[in-house]
């Protein structure tokens, strides 16, 4: 049933690929810019069947995951503290508002000065971009916890720690997860970008490297791998989110 609802959209994608194949064949698009999709598919198959795709993929994935978890942890921790304590809010709000509007991609060059071009720099830049959406959503979720619910905890004598863990965080979870979903996409962007700017490997580095050496079939093949990775990560996250928020189907 799910497949049937997906079919029309998949058909559109197939049509576009078929059209590109035809357009390149007929000379409407220069082969030098876009190899026919079938040629890209051949390279893609080679990358997949030899397992050559795996090391760069894992290298990018490592950056995405490390930054995503670090950034989420910082965002949730700081957002919760700022949401619960007015003193913490006053302490950190100006700093957050100062750093938040900076496109985090612009911070990669200065980060390279301090952290070099290794994983430390790349993970830091991913962490930075992940932190803010998670932080702001956590803050909003924590502040939005129903006063009646909080009073129920108080009248039953719950302490702050117990209330935080068993009431405030679960109640804020829909907001936190929405922030994390946005951040997951941004984490991919920053991982690929920092690999391009300071690359020794990984999908971002390869895509740029293949373009510079005019190996366009390879470039497009890696691009496809990146796209599928993004799609997979997002689907897995959506699935986990729906599971965690089962109680929201009201």
């Amino acid at each position: 049933m799910r497949l049937r609802t997906l079919l029309p959209g998949l058909f559109v994608v197939a049509m576009i690929i078929a059209f590109l194949e035809f357009a390149v064949d007929a000379g409407m698009i220069r082969r030098a810019l876009l190899p026919p999709p079938s040629a890209t598919a051949e390279v893609l198959w080679e990358l997949l069947s030899t397992g050559e795709f795996l090391p760069p993929l894992l290298s990018t994935l490592k950056l995405v995951f490390a930054g995503f978890f670090l950034g989420s942890a910082i965002g949730i921790g700081l957002g919760t503290a700022m949401g619960v304590s007015p003193a913490m809010y006053r302490l950190f709000e100006p700093l957050v508002e100062l750093i938040r509007p900076i496109p985090k991609s612009a911070l990669v060059p200065p980060l390279m000065l301090f952290l070099g071009i290794d994983d430390a720099m790349k993970i830091t830049s991913v962490t930075l971009v992940v932190t803010f959406p998670v932080l702001l959503n956590t803050l909003q979720g924590v502040r939005g916890v129903d006063r009646v619910m909080l009073d129920a905890a108080r009248t039953h004598g719950w302490g702050l720690g117990h209330t935080l863990w068993h009431m405030i965080l679960p109640a804020a979870l829909p907001f936190i997860l929405a922030g994390m979903r946005v951040s997951l996409g941004l984490a991919m962007v920053l991982a690929v970008l920092s690999e391009m700017l300071a690359g020794q490997g990984g999908l971002g580095f390869l895509i740029l490297d293949m373009q510079r050496s005019f190996q366009l079939r390879q470039m497009y093949a890696w691009l496809v791998i990146l796209a599928v990775l993004g799609l997979l990560l997002n689907s897995i996250f959506l699935l986990a989110e729906r599971r965690a928020l089962f109680w929201q189907r009201r």
């Binding site: 009646v148 619910m149 009073d151 129920a152 009248t155 068993h166 679960p170 109640a171 109680w247």
Partner: peptide, 15 residues
């Protein structure tokens, strides 16, 4: 003392 709220749907934890 325990307080019983009018808004049971807001005082119970939906999860």
């Amino acid at each position: 003392a325990v307080y019983l709220f009018q808004q049971y749907n807001r005082s119970l934890l939906p999860w």
